[in-house]
Simulated scan of single mutants.
Amino acid sequence: MRVLRSSAVAVVAAATALTAVSGCAEKSDTKGADTVRVKATDDKCEVSTTSFPAGHVKIAVENKGSKVTEVYVYAPGDRIVTERENIGPGTKAEITATIKAGAYEIACKPGMKGDGIRQKITVKGEGAAPKSDPELDKAVAEYRKYVQAQADETIPAAEKFAEAVKKGDLDEAKKLYAPSRVGWERTEPVAESFGDIDPKVDVREDGLEKDQKWTGWHKLEKSLWDEKKIDEDDKKLADQLMTDLKDWQKRVGTAEITPTSMANGAKELLDEVATGKVTGEEERYSHTDLVDFQANVEGAEKSYELLKPVASKNDAALAKELDKQFAELRKLLGDYREGDGFKAYDSVGKDDRKKLSDAVNALAEPLSKLAGAVVK
C-alpha cells in the first residue's frame, strides 16, 4: 500500500524547485551498469547525475538524514519504475534496475511520506540494450501469466465481498474481506507501477491527500470493524471498488516487467511487510495482517523461484541463502495459523512480532541483492 501520489502540476513544481548536484555516472561493480548516487537527507535529495545511459543502472542510495527514507524512480504519470523503502538513517542501499530511454524523476521521501523531494532526470538512448537471455525471457513470461492470474482470481473473490457489503451482511463481509485481498497483495508492486490504481483501492486514512475522497478496501474495513455498520455510502464504495479492480485487471497485461523489476518487486513486497504488516498498521481495524503478510511473502517467493535458475548460476551462495531464509520465514508464519487462516494480529504479542520482524529483515537483506545477481 502506498500513499496517494501528487498531481502532475505538483510533480513539476517539486522537481523545478530542487537544485541538483550534477556530474557523471560512475562505473559500478555490476557488469554493464553505471552507478547513480543518491544522497538523501531530511530536506534534500542530491543526485550525482541528471543524465545517464539506458540499460541496467545501479542506484546507490545513502541516507544521511535523521529519518527513515525511501527512494523512487518515477516515469510520467507517477508510474513507479523502481523503488526502495525503509532505508534507515546512516544506512546505504543499492537498487539495480533496467531503465529505458526517456524522462523520469528520482524522489526521496524522508519519513516515507508525501510526494517526496524530486529531481528530474533524463535516461539517454545510447546505452547498450540488455542482451536477451532465454531463461530470463521465460521468467518474465511466466511472471506475466502469474500476475494476470492473480488479478483474474481477485475479481470473483472481491465480488463476493462487495455483494455482502451491498446486502448489508456485516458478518459475511468481514469473513470475505481478507480473502478478497490476497491476489492484490501477492502482486502489489505491479499494481502500484500504474500510479493511479493503488490510491483508489488500497490507501489508508493517514495516506489521503488533501480533499481526496477515501475509497477502497480500507474504508470498508473501518466501517465493518470500527464503526460496526454498513451504510449507503459503503454500498456505493463496494461498487466503486469493483470498478477500480476491474480496471486493474484489464491493465495488468500492459505492465512493464523486466527481470530486475521482478527482483526489486520481491524486495518491495518484503518492505511492505516490514513497514505495514509487522507493525499492524495495514489492517488496523480487522487485524488480518497475517493474511496480507503471507500473500506478500508468496508473491516475493514466486518472483525469486522464476529468477532462481539464472541467479543460482551467477551467485550460488545468494540463492542458497534465499532458499534458507524463505523456508525459515514460511515455517515461522506457520506458527500463527488458526484453522484455514491466521490468528488475529492483535493477539500476537510483542515478542512474537519481534520474531516476525527479525525473520523479515533476515530475508530482505539477501533479497535486495537478487536484481544484481540476475544481470551479472
Rank of each mutant, 00 (worst) to 15 (best):
S6T: 12
S7I: 07
A8K: 15
V9P: 00
A10Q: 14
V11R: 15
A13I: 12
A20E: 07
G23K: 04
C24N: 09
K27W: 07
K27N: 11
D29R: 11
T30R: 10
V38L: 07
K39N: 09
T41N: 03
K44Y: 07
E46M: 05
S51E: 10
F52D: 05
K58P: 00
I59F: 15
I59Q: 01
A60L: 14
K64E: 12
K64D: 12
V68K: 14
V71A: 08
V71N: 03
R79A: 13
V81P: 05
R84G: 05
N86W: 11
I87Q: 02
G90E: 01
A93Y: 06
I99K: 00
A101M: 00
G102R: 00
E105W: 12
I106R: 05
C108K: 04
K113P: 00
K113D: 08
K113Y: 07
G114Q: 02
D115F: 12
R118E: 10
I121K: 07
E126K: 15
A128V: 12
A128F: 04
A129Y: 01
P134E: 06
P134K: 11
D137N: 13
K138W: 00
Q148H: 11
A151V: 04
E153R: 10
A157M: 13
K160C: 06
K167Q: 10
K167I: 00
D171R: 05
E172A: 13
A173T: 01
L176A: 03
Y177P: 01
A178T: 09
P179E: 08
W184I: 11
T187F: 14
T187A: 13
P189S: 03
E192P: 04
S193D: 04
F194P: 10
D196H: 14
I197H: 11
D202T: 03
D202V: 01
D211N: 15
T215K: 13
H218A: 01
E221H: 04
E221V: 01
S223F: 05
W225K: 03
I230D: 02
D231E: 06
D234L: 03
K235I: 03
D239E: 12
Q240A: 13
L241A: 06
M242I: 14
T243Q: 13
K246Y: 05
K250C: 06
R251Q: 15
V252D: 05
A255L: 08
A255T: 09
E256K: 10
I257N: 08
S261Q: 05
S261K: 10
G276W: 09
K277T: 00
V278C: 05
E282G: 03
R284Y: 14
H287Y: 13
D289Y: 04
A295D: 15
N296Q: 07
A300E: 07
D315L: 08
A316G: 09
A317C: 04
L322R: 05
D323M: 09
Q325K: 15
L329K: 06
R330K: 15
R330I: 04
L332D: 10
L333P: 01
D340Y: 00
G341R: 02
F342M: 01
A344R: 11
D346H: 11
G349Q: 08
K350I: 04
D351E: 14
R353F: 10
R353W: 09
K354M: 09
K355M: 08
L356P: 10
A359N: 07
A359I: 04
N361A: 15
L363M: 09
L363Y: 12
L367Y: 11
A371R: 02
A371C: 03
K376G: 13
